[in-house]
Amino acid sequence: MQHIIRAEGLIKTYGGVAARRRVLDGVSVDLGRGEFIAVMGPSGSGKTTLLFALSGMDRPDGGRIEFDGQDLSSLGERALADLRRKRMGFVFQQPSMLKHLNILDNVILAALHDRRGQAARLSAKARSLMEGAGIAELAERDVSQVSGGQLQRAGICRALMNDPLVVFGDEPTGALNSSAAEGVLEMLRKIHAGGTAIALVSHDARVAARAERVLFMRDGAFVAEERLGTFAGTGLEGRVDAVTAHMRALGI
């Protein structure tokens, strides 16, 4: 399998000399082109830190990350920003929208950065994505006028505007009720089906069970892996049981 991300021996420590804490302790992980992985673990296990390191938002203290053949440590702040904008998409736990832009402007925000004067074309693409997400009628609304689930779906549309190689999700359903969460997860499944790689971190076995591969993390290191195969929309309960059993066995 061709890899988009290849990370080896990642180390990240936080805190001063007196209270030094190793959050990533020699983590290695790969993400194949079009692959869907989920990282699970208890609070403080280093899941989010790993996600931010893989996406170039945070620099590890040790180890090496390659993204599509490029060594991230060799890239400057500007090049990393370009990479995030053009090749990656992000979905956060809280709907992270700029409050003084309406939904449509939020969706096209990053895409417009490199395409000055192409607002009309980008708006058309955004409306098409929002239609697919079932939120087309919300385009002109203020951020404060829509629900959390709708905002999260708008966030996914924003993540897809630049046709990324990979979408990163940090607990994307963490702040949603179960029906809103289902809608978001279904969107992610379709994105993956379209050939985009996905890397999620989550506490929730029902979220992780959509992934092809689930990595279990504790104290800054992977302790196990579950290969579930591609999720085609059916047989979810069995996959959830498998993930839950693994978690129980690991005491997570």
Partner: peptide
């Protein structure tokens, strides 16, 4: 307290870059 989320719109911009628009929008909104 913000106002004017609809003005000026990024989606209707023909000339200005996104940074300029975001700067203007922020001042307008606050």
């Amino acid at each position: 307290a913000r106002a004017g989320a609809n003005r000026p719109r990024l989606s209707r911009s023909r000339v200005l870059g996104v940074n300029t628009l975001l700067g203007i929008k922020d001042v307008w909104a606050r």
